[in-house]
Each structure stands twice: as C-alpha cells, then as structure tokens.
Amino acid sequence: RRVTVRKADAGGLGISIKGGRENKMPILISKIFKGLAADQTEALFVGDAILSVNGEDLSSATHDEAVQALKKTGKEVVLEVKYMK
C-alpha cells in the first residue's frame, strides 16, 4: 500500500527502522513515535516493510542506504509499504 507522510517543520518522520540486506531482512518499521508525522497518518504500523521511498526501491537496500533515503526526503514522503507477519 502507498502512504503519504507530511513532515512538520520540526522533526522527521518519527520512525525507527531495522533490517536491511546485510541482515537478510527487508527494511522494517521497528518503532513509531507518538504524535509525530508517521503516527499521524494512522496508516503505518510497526512490522511494515518499507519497499520504496519516493519511488526509490529499498527492496535490496542495506540499513544505511535506507536511513540515507529516508533522511534526504522533503516535506512530503511517499512510502510503499507491506505488512510482514
């Protein structure tokens, strides 16, 4: 599913991630910080795999590559996510 997140002037997306190619895992949302941008969408969940950020494929990204992709986003971020059981 596709989720658009609008960041506030102060603060980032409000998520922590884990996983990555070096761990043989997808990039997973490991924490959502209450009240910040990702939480306010009410459409992102701990355990979601982030498949892409603004069209940039993260399916084979390392953890560091995913962190950089998320950091360089502007005010509006489009995440392609899939819930992983």
Rank of each mutant, 00 (worst) to 15 (best):
A61L: 07
A66P: 03
T4E: 08
A43M: 10
R21S: 13
K34Y: 04
K85R: 14
R6N: 14
L13C: 04
L13T: 01
E42Y: 01
K18P: 02
G11A: 12
G19K: 04
V5T: 03
D48N: 06
K24R: 12
E22G: 06
V81F: 00
V46P: 09
V77H: 05
R6K: 14
K75Y: 07
H63E: 09
V53S: 04
K72A: 14
I32R: 02
E56P: 02
D48P: 02
G47A: 04
A37H: 03
A10K: 15
A8K: 12
L70A: 02
S60L: 10
A37L: 06
I15Q: 03
V46F: 04
G20M: 01
G55R: 04
L51Q: 07
I29N: 04
F33T: 15
Q68C: 10
A38W: 05
L36Q: 15
A8Q: 14
K82D: 08
R2H: 07
A8P: 15
E65N: 05
G14D: 08
G11M: 14
V5M: 11
E80N: 08
D64N: 09
S59Q: 11
A8S: 14
L58S: 05
A61Y: 09
A37T: 07
D48R: 03
R1L: 02
V46K: 06
L13Y: 04
G20P: 04
T73S: 12
D39F: 07
N23E: 13
N23G: 06
K24W: 04
G35Y: 10
A10C: 14
S59T: 15
M25Q: 12
K18W: 13
V81K: 06
I17A: 03
N54S: 03
T4Q: 06
R1T: 02
I32G: 03
K85D: 14
K24S: 12
I50G: 04
I27E: 02
V67H: 07
R2G: 00
V77A: 11
G11Y: 10
V3A: 02
F45A: 12
M84C: 14
A61G: 03
K34L: 06
E56D: 10
R21A: 13
K24F: 08
K82V: 11
K71A: 14
G20I: 01
K85T: 13
A38F: 00
I17S: 03
G20Q: 05
M84P: 11
Q40M: 09
A69E: 05
K82A: 12
T62W: 04
L70E: 01
G74D: 11
K34N: 07
D9G: 14
V81S: 05
P26A: 01
A43R: 11
R2W: 11
L58D: 03
R2V: 10
K18V: 15
A69Q: 07
R2M: 13
S60Q: 13
E56H: 13
V53A: 07
S16D: 13
V5Q: 02
E22A: 05
T62G: 05
K72H: 12
G35N: 09
D57N: 08
Q40C: 11
Q40Y: 06
T73E: 09
K85H: 09
G20V: 04
V3K: 02
A43P: 06
G14H: 00
G14N: 04
V46H: 04
V5A: 05
G47R: 03
K75C: 10
S52H: 04
A69I: 15
K72S: 14
D48L: 00
N54Y: 00
R21N: 00
K31V: 01
M84W: 15
L44V: 13
M84Y: 15
A8L: 14
T62C: 06
T73D: 08
S60K: 12
R21Q: 09
D48S: 03
G14W: 05
T62A: 05
L13F: 08
A38K: 04
F45I: 08
D39I: 05
S16R: 12
A38Q: 05
L79G: 04
L70K: 01
V77S: 07
F33K: 15
S16F: 08
R6D: 08
A10T: 15
L70R: 01
K24N: 14
G12W: 07
V46R: 05
V3P: 02
K31L: 01
R1N: 00
D48Y: 00
G12I: 09
G74F: 05
D48E: 00
Y83Q: 15
T73H: 09
K82R: 13
T62E: 06
I17P: 03
R2E: 08
K75V: 09
K72Y: 11
K18C: 15
G74C: 09
D39G: 06
A69H: 08
T41I: 08
E42Q: 15
G55K: 05
L13E: 05
T62Y: 07
L28D: 05
G47L: 03
M25F: 00
V81R: 05
R1C: 06
F45V: 09
I50K: 04
L79I: 08
A43S: 14
A8H: 12
D64K: 12
N54E: 03
A37G: 10
E80M: 08
S52E: 06
S52K: 12
K31M: 03
K7T: 15
Q68K: 14
A66T: 03
G55F: 00
G12Q: 12
L13D: 01
V81Y: 07
I27T: 01
V81H: 04
A61F: 05
L13R: 03
G20N: 01
M84A: 13
E80K: 09
G11I: 15
F33A: 15
I15V: 06
G20S: 01
T4S: 07
A43V: 04
Q40D: 09
A38D: 05
K71Y: 10
D39C: 05
G47Q: 05
M84E: 13
K82S: 10
F45L: 09
S30D: 14
P26Q: 03
M84T: 12
R1K: 04
V77M: 09
K82I: 11
L51C: 08
L79A: 05
A38N: 00
A66E: 02
E56V: 14
A69W: 04
I32S: 02
Y83F: 11
L13Q: 01
E56W: 11
K82E: 13
V46T: 07
I17W: 04
M25Y: 11
A38H: 02
A38G: 05
S59A: 09
V77D: 02
V67T: 12
I32H: 03
E80H: 08
I15M: 10
T73W: 07
A43Y: 06
I50P: 06
A61T: 07
L13M: 09
Q40G: 08
E65H: 08
D39W: 09
D39Q: 06
I32N: 02
G74M: 06
G20D: 04
K18N: 09
G35K: 07
H63V: 14
L58A: 02
K72G: 11
L70Q: 05
A61I: 00
V5G: 01
S52M: 06
H63N: 10
K71C: 11
